[in-house]
Structure formats: C-alpha cells, structure tokens
C-alpha cells in the first residue's frame, strides 16, 4: 500500500522560504541557473569484478551501477531474447532517512523508470544474448546502488546504468553440453551490444518556475517533478510525473523542449566517457579521494 510519506528529510522552514524567494529573483540556492545541471563526473569500470560498472557524481549525489551476467532461461513468450532486469537499492548509508529492508516504492519507481527507458527504445541488444534458443540465454542484472542522496537520483541512476551497460563484457562460454553451460567469468569476450544510448532529464516544477536537476533541498519544496527519458535520436522514450501537485498541460510543451535541449548535453557527457574509456576508467580509491 502506498502511504503519504511521513519520514521526509527535515529542512528549516526559513530555508524553504529562501528557496522560494530566490526563485522569484531568478536565482537558485546553489547559484545555478534554472536550466543548469550540477557538475557531472562519470567513471567506468569502477568494480572490475562486475561484468560492467560505472559511478556518477551529480553534485553531491553519488550513484553506482553494477551489471552482472548470468546464464538462465528466457521468458516463455520471448524465446529469442536475453533478459534485462533493473533493480535499485537505496541503501541506508546514502541518507539519514533511508532504512534497511527491501526496496520501497521510491526505489521501485526509480528502477522501473530506468527499466522502461532502456526497454522501450531497445537500448540493449537482447537478441544477441541467446545461447540455446528458447532454453538458455544471458540474464543481464542492472543494479543501481545509491551511495549519497542529494536529489535527482533517476538522472544519475540512468547515466550510471547506461555507462555500466556500455562497459559490460560478456563472459566466455567454455563448453555447452546439452543444457549444461560452463562459463568462465574471468575471461570476458565481446562487449554487451547496445543499440542506442538513453539519458533521463528530471525537471522540477514550483509555481510557474521550471528547475532542471533539482537538489534534495529543492525537491522538498517542489510541487512536482517530471522525468523524461531521451535517446540519442532525440526521441522521448519514457516519462514519469511524480509529486503531490498537478501540472498545467500548457507547460508540457515547454518542459519537453527544455528536456530535449538538456538531453543533448547529457548525451555529450555520456559520449565523452564512452569515447575515452581509458581516461575515465578509475578505481574507487581514486574516485573517493
């Protein structure tokens, strides 16, 4: 059952008022412009034991994604495709308001939004992941791991997922005897096939103001948020409105245009990392320094 959240992080009322007051002057509390992202830092191959991994810093928000591949059975209605599963964990070390336990509705929602944005434009080449048609395929587990929560988890989660999937290598198959498949995870062969890259752009709405990439403090004063998935061909590949206020239909055109514009920017960041994998492969020790 979904319940009105009762354990929201607390910020002083004066801060909320300041955030609103600044907006009226065209400013944001951290000095950004309304349509400006926080600085993005992205790294790949941060957990070498995973088949693919990435870490994204979006301001103070840190999200990591690990991709694991296992051999399993396909869905009966999709015998010619591998399986992609997206999961998100909001672990308690990421925020004073998170508690241990199975994913809550926020984590499930975040994972499902990323899942949709990957699935609908067929971002991952699932048809290349068949080992024995109808019987054995690769299962791709994309686990989003939130390490530090300062707002806009979905955009960071989407980017780290996209990088981790691009970074993923398929383990080598040693032998196939009947249904018995032996793999060697230490030998990684070809990369996981990607059809198209996707980014998510989250936009916060408060009164008549439109804020790109809201921080946690801003999220606490927002009327609502809208996350828009955008692929590299500038198509809209997923939308999720969240929050406890309605939005005027007339603002949607403007919101989509801003999202498309910012999508290009995020794709450029993504491309920079993917085109220079050596430069952006960092160990966790280097990143945490």
């Amino acid at each position: 059952m979904s319940i009105t959240p009762t354990k929201q992080p607390v910020i002083p009322r004066i801060k909320k008022e300041t955030i609103r007051k600044l907006l009226r002057r065209g400013e944001r509390i951290d000095g950004r412009r309304f349509e400006e992202y926080r600085p993005i830092k992205a790294y790949i191959n941060v957990v070498p034991k995973a088949e693919g991994s990435a870490l994204v810093r979006l301001g103070n928000t840190i999200v990591m994604t690990g991709v694991k591949l296992e051999v399993g059975t396909p869905f009966p209605d999709r015998p010619g495709e591998g399986v992609l599963q997206v999961n998100a964990e909001f672990v308690p070390l990421a925020s004073p308001t998170f508690e241990p336990g199975p994913p809550d509705e926020f984590a499930i929602e975040a994972a499902r939004v990323v899942d949709r944005c990957l699935r609908e434009p067929k971002a991952v080449k699932l048809d290349e992941l068949v080992i024995i048609p109808g019987k054995k395929v690769w299962l791709v587990f994309n686990d989003i791991y939130l390490l530090d929560h300062d707002g806009n988890i979905i955009d960071a989660g989407m980017m780290s997922s996209m990088l981790a999937l691009n970074n993923a290598r398929i383990p080598s198959i040693v032998s196939i005897e009947g249904d018995n498949i032996v793999i060697d995870k230490k030998v990684k062969e070809k990369p996981l096939g990607i059809n198209v890259n996707v980014v998510a752009v989250t936009i916060g709405l408060i009164d008549e103001y439109i804020l790109v990439d809201p921080t946690l403090e801003e999220e606490l004063v927002l009327d609502s948020k809208i996350t828009i998935g955008i692929d590299e061909n500038n198509r809209v590949v997923g939308i999720q409105k969240t929050g406890m206020r309605g939005i005027k239909p007339s603002t949607l055109e403007n919101i989509v245009d801003i999202a498309l514009k910012k999508g290009v920017e995020l794709h450029r960041v993504l491309g920079e990392v993917l085109n220079n994998p050596q430069q952006y492969s960092k160990t966790l020790a280097e990143i945490m320094k």
């Binding site: 609908e120 809209v236 590949v237 997923g238 939308i239 999720q240 409105k241 005027k248 239909p249 498309l260």
Partner: peptide
Amino acid sequence: IVLLQLNGVLTR
C-alpha cells in the same frame, strides 16, 4: 494533469 507516464517511444 495529475498523473502522467509514458511507456514507449514518441517524437516531440
């Protein structure tokens, strides 16, 4: 609009 989701691919 109080609920809005999109599952699929659309142009602007």
